[in-house]
Structures are given as structure tokens and as C-alpha cells.
């Protein structure tokens, strides 16, 4: 680890100001990606701005038709939340499948979404549910937020404060874990709303994406059989030592079917 300055602001504007005023400063939420990167000396920010003292970023609020989860809420809290389990069980299930118990205790929803790792679980839930990312300056629809490999619509000094999820009629997540890392080799989140179905895929490509043919098929018939024959194009999908693109493409259909089954169970 290389030396860096450390700040722990108490207010969101203070945190944003530090980010703007210190060149090469970085936010740290749970630190599940950043800290290992620092330890390997692959990143050397001048300063870390720790969000852990911003109490307003923690907690889960019930607004009836929506649920809002504070950006600094750890995965374990979302997984164990009676509110989330009742209203969006698929999201609670997704949170329970992230990493291991230590990661779920430290890692946060805001950190995961801001990092936009191509194999992270939350982006599938956020995009699949059509959530809204609330930041220090504005609200961003999930469809406009994820821009590909580790890229998001966030401005350099913008801080995610919460994520607002619409409550679906049904939702489910199915994840095929990469054997070693247990990130999603392929993860599919399926959500059924009154006005249609959303299907979001993580792990298969350089960033989370939706599958319109599956959404159309499931909007007509919310059953796994409706998508069993839908094949995903391998173009743009990831190939690595664990899985080539054609296997990932195949898994998207299998996991989508299982996500529908999970939503219906």
C-alpha cells in the first residue's frame, strides 16, 4: 500500500467538496474492491474520502410502491431485511448471494453500483428492477446509469446516496457462480411489473445489459417455458479461462429460466 491522506467527513457536501478539491482522491465505502487494489499497489490515490460516518446513507425505507436503500447499507443488512424479503424477495436473495459473509458485512450497495464491476450482482438487480440511483446532485434512471466496464454516469465529484427500487409484482435472481471468485459468471435478474417484464444480465459481458426478446416473451407469458428457446448472441460476450462466450450465452437462457422459476416460487 502506498501512503495516502484519509478523510472521514460527516456531511455529504463536505465529502463532495473533498472529492472536488483533492485531485486523485477516491471515495471508499465498504472498500471490498478498493482496499485489495491499494494493497496490491495497483491504485495510489492521494486521498481517501471515507463515507462511513455519513449516517444518512444507511438504512432501508418503505415508501409503499418503492423501497429506498441507503448507499452505505451493507449487503448482509439488505439480505436480512424483513421489508426487502417481503416486498422484493428476489433482491434480498441477490444480496445473500454476494461474496461471502465477510464481504456481505462490509460491502455496500452504493459501492457495488458505483464500481459497476461487470460480474457484480447488484447491477443486475438495479437494472432489472428499473431502479433510480439517487446521488448528491440528481436522480439517474438505471437504464442511463450503467455505461459498460466499470463505467457509470456518475460525475467525478458525484456521490451515490441511495437507490430507490420500485416494488414489482414478482422478481427473481439466478446466479451461476464463477467457480473460484464466486462472482457471477452469469447472473440474471427478472422482474415483472404491471406494465411489463424486465430482464437484466450481469457477468456475461463487459457490463450489465437487458434482453428485450426475453422481456417481450415473458410479458406475454411469465413462465420459464416462454424463454427456453431464446438464444443469446455471443457477440460482445466475455471469453476467459473459465467460460467461452458461447457457454456464457447458453447460461443466460438457463439462468433466466431459473430466475423466472425463483420469481414464481
Amino acid at each position: 500500500m502506498k501512503p495516502f491522506a484519509y478523510h472521514q467527513p460527516g456531511q455529504i457536501p463536505d465529502a463532495a467538496k473533498l472529492l472536488t478539491s483533492i485531485e486523485d482522491s477516491k471515495l471508499v465505502a465498504g472498500g471490498m474492491t478498493l482496499i485489495p487494489t491499494l494493497k496490491q499497489r495497483l491504485a495510489s490515490p492521494v486521498a481517501l474520502v471515507d463515507l462511513s460516518k455519513l449516517g444518512s446513507l444507511k438504512g432501508i425505507a418503505d415508501e409503499g410502491a418503492t423501497i429506498t436503500i441507503g448507499a452505505m447499507t451493507p449487503h448482509a443488512v439488505v439480505a436480512a431485511s424483513k421489508l426487502v424479503q417481503t416486498k422484493i424477495p428476489g433482491l434480498a436473495a441477490l444480496a445473500s448471494m454476494i461474496g461471502d459473509p465477510a464481504v456481505r458485512s462490509r460491502g455496500t450497495i452504493g459501492g457495488s453500483v458505483a464500481n459497476n464491476d461487470p460480474a457484480a450482482d447488484y447491477p443486475a438487480g438495479v437494472l432489472g428492477l428499473g431502479a433510480t440511483i439517487i446521488t448528491s446532485t440528481r436522480e439517474i434512471a438505471a437504464d442511463k446509469f450503467f455505461l459498460g466496464l466499470f463505467e457509470t454516469a456518475l460525475e467525478p465529484s458525484e456521490i451515490i446516496t441511495a437507490i430507490r427500487f420500485p416494488v414489482p409484482l414478482k422478481a427473481g435472481y439466478a446466479k451461476f457462480k464463477a467457480p473460484a471468485s464466486r462472482y457471477a459468471l452469469v447472473g440474471v435478474f427478472v422482474a415483472k411489473f404491471a406494465d411489463g417484464v424486465r430482464v437484466a444480465v450481469t457477468g456475461a459481458g463487459p457490463g450489465v445489459f437487458r434482453v428485450p426478446p426475453m422481456e417481450a416473451a415473458l410479458s406475454g407469458n411469465f413462465d420459464a417455458s416462454a424463454i427456453a428457446a431464446i438464444k443469446i448472441d455471443t457477440d460482445g460476450l466475455t471469453s476467459d479461462i473459465h467460460a467461452e462466450a458461447d457457454y456464457r450465452a447458453h447460461l443466460v437462457t438457463v439462468m433466466a429460466k431459473r430466475a423466472v422459476d425463483a420469481a414464481l416460487s
Partner: peptide, 24 residues
């Protein structure tokens, strides 16, 4: 079932060089 040390032919880079890629 799980473990495999994989090298890249040509460059000699170890592709399964961490617990993230080498499955114990």
C-alpha cells in the same frame, strides 16, 4: 473438479494467478 494452473502460450503469463481464478 476445480483446480487448474493455466499459462498463456507465447507470453508465459500465469492466467490462474490468484484465488479469484484458481479454484480451490
Amino acid at each position: 473438479l476445480f483446480e487448474n494452473a493455466v499459462y498463456d502460450e507465447g507470453s508465459g503469463q500465469l492466467l490462474s494467478g490468484s484465488l479469484m481464478d484458481y479454484c480451490m
